[in-house]
Design a protein around this nucleic acid. Structure first.
Lengths: 184, 184
DNA sequence: GTCTATATGTTGATAGAC
DNA sequence: GTCTATCAACATATAGAC
Protein backbone atom coordinates (compact mmCIF):
# COMPACT_ATOMS: atom_id res chain seq x y z
CA UNK A 1 0.00 0.00 0.00
CA UNK A 2 1.38 3.43 -0.91
CA UNK A 3 1.75 6.27 1.56
CA UNK A 4 -1.34 8.10 0.37
CA UNK A 5 -3.49 5.04 0.92
CA UNK A 6 -1.95 4.40 4.32
CA UNK A 7 -2.81 7.94 5.37
CA UNK A 8 -6.36 7.58 4.08
CA UNK A 9 -6.79 4.31 5.93
CA UNK A 10 -5.49 5.74 9.19
CA UNK A 11 -7.59 8.89 8.84
CA UNK A 12 -10.67 6.77 8.27
CA UNK A 13 -10.11 4.98 11.56
CA UNK A 14 -9.44 8.22 13.41
CA UNK A 15 -12.59 9.87 12.05
CA UNK A 16 -14.70 6.91 13.04
CA UNK A 17 -13.09 6.61 16.44
CA UNK A 18 -12.75 10.26 17.55
CA UNK A 19 -14.59 12.38 15.01
CA UNK A 20 -13.37 14.66 12.24
CA UNK A 21 -12.80 17.71 14.42
CA UNK A 22 -10.94 15.75 17.09
CA UNK A 23 -8.12 14.38 14.95
CA UNK A 24 -5.10 16.31 13.70
CA UNK A 25 -2.22 16.01 11.27
CA UNK A 26 -0.13 14.95 14.25
CA UNK A 27 -2.39 11.94 14.75
CA UNK A 28 -1.54 10.94 11.19
CA UNK A 29 2.17 11.76 11.11
CA UNK A 30 3.19 10.23 14.45
CA UNK A 31 2.06 6.65 13.89
CA UNK A 32 3.44 6.78 10.35
CA UNK A 33 6.74 8.11 11.72
CA UNK A 34 6.97 11.05 9.33
CA UNK A 35 6.74 14.82 9.88
CA UNK A 36 3.44 16.62 9.52
CA UNK A 37 4.77 18.32 6.37
CA UNK A 38 4.89 14.92 4.68
CA UNK A 39 1.17 14.51 5.25
CA UNK A 40 0.57 17.99 3.82
CA UNK A 41 2.46 16.93 0.69
CA UNK A 42 -0.18 14.26 0.02
CA UNK A 43 -3.13 16.23 1.35
CA UNK A 44 -2.61 20.02 1.34
CA UNK A 45 -5.64 20.71 3.51
CA UNK A 46 -7.49 18.69 6.12
CA UNK A 47 -10.62 18.66 4.00
CA UNK A 48 -8.64 16.82 1.31
CA UNK A 49 -8.08 14.02 3.81
CA UNK A 50 -11.76 13.94 4.66
CA UNK A 51 -12.78 13.81 1.02
CA UNK A 52 -10.35 10.98 0.28
CA UNK A 53 -11.78 8.99 3.18
CA UNK A 54 -15.36 9.43 1.98
CA UNK A 55 -14.41 8.61 -1.62
CA UNK A 56 -12.76 5.41 -0.44
CA UNK A 57 -15.87 4.46 1.51
CA UNK A 58 -18.06 5.02 -1.54
CA UNK A 59 -15.78 2.86 -3.70
CA UNK A 60 -15.61 0.08 -1.14
CA UNK A 61 -19.38 0.03 -0.74
CA UNK A 62 -19.61 -0.23 -4.50
CA UNK A 63 -17.45 -3.35 -4.43
CA UNK A 64 -19.56 -4.91 -1.68
CA UNK A 65 -22.75 -4.25 -3.62
CA UNK A 66 -21.30 -6.05 -6.61
CA UNK A 67 -20.21 -9.02 -4.51
CA UNK A 68 -23.73 -9.34 -3.07
CA UNK A 69 -25.58 -8.76 -6.29
CA UNK A 70 -26.46 -12.41 -6.90
CA UNK A 71 -27.76 -13.08 -3.39
CA UNK A 72 -31.46 -12.91 -2.48
CA UNK A 73 -32.35 -9.57 -0.94
CA UNK A 74 -32.74 -10.81 2.61
CA UNK A 75 -29.18 -12.12 2.50
CA UNK A 76 -27.95 -8.89 0.91
CA UNK A 77 -29.48 -7.00 3.82
CA UNK A 78 -27.86 -9.35 6.26
CA UNK A 79 -24.46 -8.80 4.62
CA UNK A 80 -25.08 -5.06 4.83
CA UNK A 81 -25.89 -5.28 8.53
CA UNK A 82 -22.88 -7.47 9.20
CA UNK A 83 -20.68 -4.77 7.70
CA UNK A 84 -21.81 -2.60 10.62
CA UNK A 85 -21.31 -5.44 13.07
CA UNK A 86 -17.67 -5.74 12.02
CA UNK A 87 -17.24 -2.02 12.70
CA UNK A 88 -18.87 -2.48 16.07
CA UNK A 89 -16.39 -5.16 17.04
CA UNK A 90 -13.56 -2.79 16.21
CA UNK A 91 -15.13 -0.04 18.32
CA UNK A 92 -15.71 2.09 15.23
CA UNK A 93 -18.85 3.94 14.25
CA UNK A 94 -19.83 4.45 10.62
CA UNK A 95 -18.74 7.43 8.55
CA UNK A 96 -22.22 8.94 8.42
CA UNK A 97 -22.61 8.58 12.16
CA UNK A 98 -19.34 10.41 12.64
CA UNK A 99 -19.74 13.16 10.04
CA UNK A 100 -23.45 13.99 10.24
CA UNK A 101 -23.20 15.57 13.73
CA UNK A 102 -20.28 17.72 12.54
CA UNK A 103 -21.98 18.46 9.22
CA UNK A 104 -22.43 22.21 9.80
CA UNK A 105 -18.73 22.64 10.66
CA UNK A 106 -17.49 20.90 7.51
CA UNK A 107 -16.26 22.77 4.41
CA UNK A 108 -18.77 22.72 1.58
CA UNK A 109 -16.82 20.25 -0.54
CA UNK A 110 -16.96 17.73 2.29
CA UNK A 111 -20.64 18.38 2.92
CA UNK A 112 -21.38 17.50 -0.69
CA UNK A 113 -19.40 14.28 -0.41
CA UNK A 114 -21.18 13.26 2.78
CA UNK A 115 -24.52 13.88 1.12
CA UNK A 116 -23.51 11.91 -1.98
CA UNK A 117 -22.41 9.00 0.18
CA UNK A 118 -25.72 9.03 2.04
CA UNK A 119 -27.81 9.17 -1.12
CA UNK A 120 -25.77 6.37 -2.63
CA UNK A 121 -26.37 4.15 0.39
CA UNK A 122 -30.07 5.01 0.58
CA UNK A 123 -30.58 4.35 -3.12
CA UNK A 124 -29.16 0.86 -2.81
CA UNK A 125 -31.04 0.08 0.38
CA UNK A 126 -34.33 1.35 -1.03
CA UNK A 127 -34.00 -0.87 -4.09
CA UNK A 128 -32.96 -3.87 -1.99
CA UNK A 129 -35.99 -3.49 0.29
CA UNK A 130 -38.43 -2.88 -2.56
CA UNK A 131 -37.24 -5.89 -4.54
CA UNK A 132 -37.18 -8.07 -1.44
CA UNK A 133 -40.71 -7.09 -0.57
CA UNK A 134 -41.94 -7.89 -4.08
CA UNK A 135 -40.45 -11.36 -3.70
CA UNK A 136 -42.02 -11.80 -0.28
CA UNK A 137 -38.65 -11.86 1.47
CA UNK A 138 -39.45 -8.79 3.55
CA UNK A 139 -42.60 -7.66 5.26
CA UNK A 140 -43.01 -3.95 5.95
CA UNK A 141 -45.48 -1.14 5.40
CA UNK A 142 -44.94 2.26 3.80
CA UNK A 143 -42.62 3.44 1.07
CA UNK A 144 -39.40 1.49 0.62
CA UNK A 145 -37.38 4.72 0.86
CA UNK A 146 -38.86 5.55 4.26
CA UNK A 147 -38.12 2.01 5.43
CA UNK A 148 -34.58 2.35 4.13
CA UNK A 149 -34.17 5.49 6.22
CA UNK A 150 -35.22 3.56 9.32
CA UNK A 151 -32.94 0.61 8.57
CA UNK A 152 -29.89 2.79 7.92
CA UNK A 153 -30.65 4.91 10.95
CA UNK A 154 -30.96 1.88 13.21
CA UNK A 155 -27.56 0.51 12.23
CA UNK A 156 -25.94 3.95 12.45
CA UNK A 157 -27.21 4.65 15.93
CA UNK A 158 -26.71 1.08 17.10
CA UNK A 159 -22.99 1.80 16.70
CA UNK A 160 -23.30 5.08 18.59
CA UNK A 161 -25.38 3.72 21.44
CA UNK A 162 -23.26 0.60 21.80
CA UNK A 163 -20.48 2.84 23.09
CA UNK A 164 -22.66 4.62 25.60
CA UNK A 165 -25.25 2.13 26.81
CA UNK A 166 -23.22 -1.06 26.89
CA UNK A 167 -21.81 -3.63 24.55
CA UNK A 168 -24.96 -5.69 24.12
CA UNK A 169 -26.73 -2.72 22.56
CA UNK A 170 -25.70 -3.29 18.96
CA UNK A 171 -26.69 -6.96 19.01
CA UNK A 172 -30.08 -6.19 20.53
CA UNK A 173 -30.87 -3.59 17.90
CA UNK A 174 -29.51 -5.75 15.10
CA UNK A 175 -31.71 -8.70 16.10
CA UNK A 176 -34.81 -6.61 16.51
CA UNK A 177 -34.27 -4.85 13.19
CA UNK A 178 -33.95 -8.06 11.18
CA UNK A 179 -36.75 -9.81 13.04
CA UNK A 180 -39.08 -6.87 12.26
CA UNK A 181 -38.31 -6.98 8.56
CA UNK A 182 -38.39 -10.73 8.10
CA UNK A 183 -41.48 -11.54 10.13
CA UNK A 184 -44.78 -12.25 8.46
CA UNK B 1 -31.60 34.33 33.95
CA UNK B 2 -28.20 34.51 35.68
CA UNK B 3 -24.91 34.42 33.80
CA UNK B 4 -24.20 30.81 34.61
CA UNK B 5 -27.53 29.73 33.15
CA UNK B 6 -27.03 31.90 30.08
CA UNK B 7 -23.68 30.25 29.44
CA UNK B 8 -25.17 26.79 29.90
CA UNK B 9 -27.98 27.60 27.51
CA UNK B 10 -25.62 28.93 24.85
CA UNK B 11 -23.25 25.99 25.25
CA UNK B 12 -26.15 23.59 24.84
CA UNK B 13 -27.01 25.15 21.49
CA UNK B 14 -23.39 25.14 20.35
CA UNK B 15 -22.90 21.48 21.29
CA UNK B 16 -26.03 20.48 19.43
CA UNK B 17 -25.21 22.64 16.43
CA UNK B 18 -21.45 22.08 16.00
CA UNK B 19 -20.44 19.35 18.40
CA UNK B 20 -18.54 19.41 21.70
CA UNK B 21 -15.05 19.44 20.18
CA UNK B 22 -15.87 22.17 17.68
CA UNK B 23 -16.90 24.91 20.10
CA UNK B 24 -14.59 27.00 22.25
CA UNK B 25 -14.64 29.44 25.15
CA UNK B 26 -14.51 32.18 22.54
CA UNK B 27 -17.82 30.98 21.10
CA UNK B 28 -19.29 31.49 24.56
CA UNK B 29 -17.60 34.75 25.53
CA UNK B 30 -18.08 36.68 22.28
CA UNK B 31 -21.88 36.54 22.00
CA UNK B 32 -22.15 37.26 25.73
CA UNK B 33 -19.76 40.19 25.32
CA UNK B 34 -17.46 39.21 28.13
CA UNK B 35 -13.84 37.98 28.17
CA UNK B 36 -13.02 34.30 28.11
CA UNK B 37 -11.77 34.58 31.72
CA UNK B 38 -15.30 35.41 32.82
CA UNK B 39 -16.51 32.10 31.43
CA UNK B 40 -13.67 30.33 33.26
CA UNK B 41 -14.87 31.92 36.51
CA UNK B 42 -18.19 30.09 36.16
CA UNK B 43 -16.78 26.95 34.58
CA UNK B 44 -13.07 26.34 35.31
CA UNK B 45 -12.70 23.62 32.68
CA UNK B 46 -14.53 22.87 29.46
CA UNK B 47 -15.80 19.58 30.85
CA UNK B 48 -17.60 21.54 33.56
CA UNK B 49 -19.58 23.28 30.82
CA UNK B 50 -20.41 19.96 29.23
CA UNK B 51 -21.54 18.46 32.51
CA UNK B 52 -23.75 21.45 33.29
CA UNK B 53 -25.39 21.13 29.88
CA UNK B 54 -26.13 17.43 30.38
CA UNK B 55 -27.41 18.00 33.91
CA UNK B 56 -29.78 20.65 32.61
CA UNK B 57 -31.05 18.28 29.93
CA UNK B 58 -31.70 15.57 32.52
CA UNK B 59 -33.60 18.01 34.74
CA UNK B 60 -35.68 19.36 31.88
CA UNK B 61 -36.59 15.87 30.70
CA UNK B 62 -37.67 15.15 34.25
CA UNK B 63 -40.07 18.08 34.13
CA UNK B 64 -41.50 16.95 30.80
CA UNK B 65 -42.07 13.45 32.13
CA UNK B 66 -44.03 14.86 35.04
CA UNK B 67 -46.13 17.07 32.76
CA UNK B 68 -47.01 14.07 30.59
CA UNK B 69 -47.59 11.64 33.43
CA UNK B 70 -51.39 11.77 33.25
CA UNK B 71 -51.62 11.27 29.49
CA UNK B 72 -52.20 7.87 27.89
CA UNK B 73 -48.93 6.30 26.74
CA UNK B 74 -49.49 6.84 23.02
CA UNK B 75 -49.84 10.57 23.66
CA UNK B 76 -46.83 10.56 25.93
CA UNK B 77 -44.82 9.03 23.13
CA UNK B 78 -46.11 11.63 20.73
CA UNK B 79 -45.09 14.41 23.10
CA UNK B 80 -41.67 12.80 23.35
CA UNK B 81 -41.30 12.68 19.58
CA UNK B 82 -42.48 16.26 19.21
CA UNK B 83 -39.69 17.32 21.53
CA UNK B 84 -37.32 16.10 18.82
CA UNK B 85 -39.36 17.78 16.11
CA UNK B 86 -38.95 21.13 17.81
CA UNK B 87 -35.19 20.59 17.85
CA UNK B 88 -35.34 19.71 14.19
CA UNK B 89 -37.06 22.98 13.33
CA UNK B 90 -34.26 24.85 15.08
CA UNK B 91 -31.62 22.92 13.15
CA UNK B 92 -30.40 21.27 16.36
CA UNK B 93 -29.65 17.60 16.96
CA UNK B 94 -30.15 15.96 20.35
CA UNK B 95 -27.44 15.81 23.02
CA UNK B 96 -26.95 12.08 22.65
CA UNK B 97 -26.62 12.39 18.89
CA UNK B 98 -23.97 15.04 19.40
CA UNK B 99 -22.00 13.48 22.26
CA UNK B 100 -22.11 9.77 21.43
CA UNK B 101 -19.83 10.10 18.36
CA UNK B 102 -17.31 12.07 20.45
CA UNK B 103 -17.72 9.73 23.42
CA UNK B 104 -14.19 8.33 23.37
CA UNK B 105 -12.67 11.84 23.35
CA UNK B 106 -14.65 13.00 26.39
CA UNK B 107 -13.23 13.16 29.93
CA UNK B 108 -14.49 10.35 32.13
CA UNK B 109 -16.78 12.56 34.20
CA UNK B 110 -18.60 13.59 31.04
CA UNK B 111 -18.79 10.03 29.76
CA UNK B 112 -20.55 9.01 32.96
CA UNK B 113 -23.03 11.85 32.60
CA UNK B 114 -23.78 10.95 28.99
CA UNK B 115 -24.38 7.36 30.00
CA UNK B 116 -26.63 8.40 32.90
CA UNK B 117 -28.66 10.61 30.57
CA UNK B 118 -29.09 7.75 28.10
CA UNK B 119 -30.12 5.25 30.75
CA UNK B 120 -32.58 7.74 32.19
CA UNK B 121 -34.19 8.27 28.81
CA UNK B 122 -34.27 4.55 27.99
CA UNK B 123 -35.79 3.68 31.36
CA UNK B 124 -38.66 6.06 30.81
CA UNK B 125 -39.22 5.01 27.22
CA UNK B 126 -39.14 1.32 28.10
CA UNK B 127 -41.77 1.78 30.78
CA UNK B 128 -43.93 3.94 28.50
CA UNK B 129 -43.86 1.32 25.74
CA UNK B 130 -44.48 -1.60 28.09
CA UNK B 131 -47.43 0.08 29.78
CA UNK B 132 -48.83 1.23 26.46
CA UNK B 133 -48.62 -2.26 25.05
CA UNK B 134 -50.41 -3.72 28.07
CA UNK B 135 -53.26 -1.28 27.47
CA UNK B 136 -53.34 -2.12 23.76
CA UNK B 137 -52.20 1.38 22.77
CA UNK B 138 -49.05 0.07 21.05
CA UNK B 139 -48.42 -2.95 18.94
CA UNK B 140 -44.88 -4.30 18.76
CA UNK B 141 -42.95 -7.50 19.22
CA UNK B 142 -39.93 -8.23 21.39
CA UNK B 143 -38.80 -6.79 24.70
CA UNK B 144 -39.91 -3.26 25.51
CA UNK B 145 -36.31 -2.25 26.18
CA UNK B 146 -35.20 -3.34 22.73
CA UNK B 147 -38.12 -1.45 21.18
CA UNK B 148 -37.18 1.60 23.23
CA UNK B 149 -33.67 1.41 21.78
CA UNK B 150 -35.13 1.45 18.27
CA UNK B 151 -37.50 4.33 19.01
CA UNK B 152 -34.81 6.50 20.59
CA UNK B 153 -32.35 5.65 17.83
CA UNK B 154 -34.84 6.57 15.12
CA UNK B 155 -35.47 10.02 16.57
CA UNK B 156 -31.77 10.60 17.23
CA UNK B 157 -30.71 9.75 13.70
CA UNK B 158 -33.71 11.44 12.12
CA UNK B 159 -32.19 14.69 13.39
CA UNK B 160 -28.76 13.75 12.02
CA UNK B 161 -30.00 12.61 8.62
CA UNK B 162 -32.33 15.56 8.22
CA UNK B 163 -29.25 17.77 7.89
CA UNK B 164 -27.59 15.59 5.30
CA UNK B 165 -30.35 14.04 3.21
CA UNK B 166 -32.84 16.89 3.03
CA UNK B 167 -35.40 18.58 5.20
CA UNK B 168 -38.23 16.11 4.64
CA UNK B 169 -36.19 13.35 6.26
CA UNK B 170 -37.20 13.93 9.85
CA UNK B 171 -40.90 14.05 9.04
CA UNK B 172 -40.72 10.86 6.97
CA UNK B 173 -39.02 8.96 9.76
CA UNK B 174 -41.29 10.43 12.41
CA UNK B 175 -44.42 9.36 10.52
CA UNK B 176 -43.15 5.87 9.82
CA UNK B 177 -42.04 5.36 13.42
CA UNK B 178 -45.41 6.26 14.93
CA UNK B 179 -47.37 4.41 12.28
CA UNK B 180 -45.34 1.25 13.00
CA UNK B 181 -46.03 1.41 16.72
CA UNK B 182 -49.69 2.33 16.56
CA UNK B 183 -50.80 -0.05 13.85
CA UNK B 184 -52.61 -3.24 14.66
C1' DG C 1 -17.94 38.78 38.53
C1' DT C 2 -15.43 40.68 35.23
C1' DC C 3 -11.26 42.52 33.75
C1' DT C 4 -6.12 42.58 31.72
C1' DA C 5 -2.41 39.99 30.97
C1' DT C 6 -0.17 35.99 30.19
C1' DA C 7 1.26 31.10 30.06
C1' DT C 8 1.53 27.07 27.37
C1' DG C 9 0.34 24.03 24.06
C1' DT C 10 -1.70 22.71 19.63
C1' DT C 11 -3.58 23.50 15.28
C1' DG C 12 -3.52 23.70 10.12
C1' DA C 13 -0.47 25.24 6.85
C1' DT C 14 3.78 26.95 4.01
C1' DA C 15 8.79 27.81 2.26
C1' DG C 16 12.68 25.95 0.85
C1' DA C 17 16.65 22.44 1.41
C1' DC C 18 17.79 17.65 0.36
C1' DG D 1 8.63 12.52 -0.91
C1' DT D 2 10.38 13.76 3.12
C1' DC D 3 12.85 16.89 5.81
C1' DT D 4 13.76 21.33 8.96
C1' DA D 5 12.05 25.40 10.23
C1' DT D 6 8.67 28.46 10.95
C1' DC D 7 4.16 30.76 11.07
C1' DA D 8 -0.16 32.94 12.65
C1' DA D 9 -4.12 31.68 14.82
C1' DC D 10 -6.43 29.60 18.21
C1' DA D 11 -7.06 26.46 22.15
C1' DT D 12 -7.69 25.82 27.37
C1' DA D 13 -6.41 27.68 31.41
C1' DT D 14 -4.50 30.73 35.37
C1' DA D 15 -2.84 34.98 38.29
C1' DG D 16 -3.92 38.98 40.14
C1' DA D 17 -6.10 43.84 39.79
C1' DC D 18 -10.55 46.23 40.13
Amino acid sequence: MNTRDKITRLADQLIRKQGYNAFSYKDLSEPMQVRNAAIHYHFPAKADVGIAVIDKAIREFDEYKQQWSDLPENEQLEQFAQMYMRNCKQGLICLMGSLAPDYLTLPEAMQMKVRAMGQDLLDWLTYCLEQGRKKGLFSFSGEAYDRALLVASTLLSALLLNRVLGEDTFQRMYDQLLSDLLKK
